[in-house]
Amino acid sequence: MSNTAANIQRKINSASDLKGVVRTMKAVAASSISQYENSVSALADYYRTVELGLSASLRGSRSNMPLLAPAFHQPAADSQVIGAIVFGSDQGLVGQFNEDLADFAINILRKLGEKPRVWAIGERVQARIADSGVAIEKGFSVPTSVNAIADLVRQIQIESDTQGTSAINAVVYVFHNRPVSASLYQPVSQRLLPLDHQWYHHLIQVQWPTKMPPEFLCSSSTTIAALIREYVFISLYRACAESLASENASRLAAMQRAEKNIDELLENLTRDFDRVRQSSIDEELSDVLAGYELLNTNQK
């Protein structure tokens, strides 16, 4: 296609339309980051409440430790089941978001020396993990809002209880990206289950904030089981919210780079358009002058 003024103008119009789309995606990503970060901050108060409840319950049950034994067992190596929950993204335009996370999770899982049962949230990270040769046992869709995170976490917990992933012989790891700045993130991992003695001793050292100890209206084992379930819920919810905040931060950074590239492209196209237009004007002027000179010559 010849590099005419009309063709260059069409390219300029297309680039301008694309820049409008990029600006819209930037605004959506920026607003999404704040709501996910706010949800993580609000979750801290709820986690503190659950932590205090577990601390009081565990201290009250110290004389009845057999009730807690299933939660604190270390599984035997020959019966160990490795479970992994990986939070990625469904959509693209996020740079190396899914690639970095998938490589990080795969390297850790391979060091464990077991065939893991991987549950992945997000089509993009599922594809990346599958390409590495690790089978995906179950996939989930990424929540599209803060309100949808709780539904996803409940679904994961229900599937876990149904398929026995949270059994005594299971070791469950959670992998996700955690934001570290406005546009940066880092892959992190957490061993979610089983709950070990280090976790237990940390909790019983948490001090109750008042001088009046709490009272329990039901058995300590029932209270502990309910609070542990809430602890798992909070851990998964926070991992999902941090992953979504990181995803939108990565998308915002990608859109900023795209906007910069579009601005440079528009600048080059505008320069080419001005040059082609000036060249066309010069040619027209030359034709006018040539015709004028020819007319004068004929008249003489």
Rank of each mutant, 00 (worst) to 15 (best):
M1C: 15
N3E: 14
A5T: 08
N7P: 03
I8T: 02
I8L: 08
R10W: 05
S16L: 10
L18W: 06
L18P: 02
M25H: 04
A30T: 10
I33V: 14
Q35N: 14
Y36E: 04
Y36L: 07
V40P: 04
V40W: 05
S41C: 10
L43Q: 12
A44W: 08
A44I: 13
Y46T: 13
Y46L: 13
R48D: 15
R48N: 15
T49I: 12
L52R: 06
L52T: 10
S55C: 09
S57P: 05
L58V: 02
R59P: 01
R59D: 05
S61G: 15
R62F: 10
S63E: 06
N64R: 11
L67N: 03
L68Q: 00
L68H: 00
A71I: 03
F72K: 00
H73N: 11
P75T: 14
D78A: 14
S89C: 14
V94P: 01
D100M: 09
A105S: 11
I108N: 08
E114R: 14
V118Y: 00
V118I: 15
E123V: 06
V125R: 00
A127S: 15
A127C: 08
R128L: 06
I129C: 06
A130F: 11
A130E: 14
D131R: 08
D131T: 07
S132Q: 15
G139V: 06
G139I: 10
V142I: 13
V146E: 09
D151T: 13
D151H: 11
V153P: 01
V153Q: 02
Q155R: 13
I158H: 10
E159N: 09
T162K: 10
T162C: 02
G164T: 13
N169S: 08
A170T: 01
V172P: 00
V174A: 03
F175V: 00
F175K: 01
N177I: 03
N177V: 03
P179H: 07
P179V: 05
L184M: 08
Q186Y: 02
P187I: 08
L192T: 01
L192S: 03
L192D: 00
P194R: 06
I204M: 04
Q205G: 09
W208H: 12
P209T: 12
T210V: 14
P213K: 09
F216Q: 01
S219E: 15
S221L: 05
A225Y: 00
A225K: 01
A226D: 02
Y231H: 04
Y231V: 01
C240P: 00
E247G: 07
N248Q: 11
S250E: 09
R251V: 06
A253N: 09
M255W: 01
R257V: 12
R257C: 05
E259G: 10
E259L: 05
N261K: 12
N261S: 15
E264L: 08
L265I: 09
L265C: 12
L265E: 11
L266P: 01
L269F: 12
F273D: 03
F273T: 04
R277Y: 09
R277V: 12
Q278R: 13
Q278E: 15
I281N: 09
D282I: 04
L285I: 10
D287C: 07
A290I: 03
A290M: 07
G291A: 13
Y292L: 12
E293D: 12
L294V: 09
N296S: 06
Q299S: 15
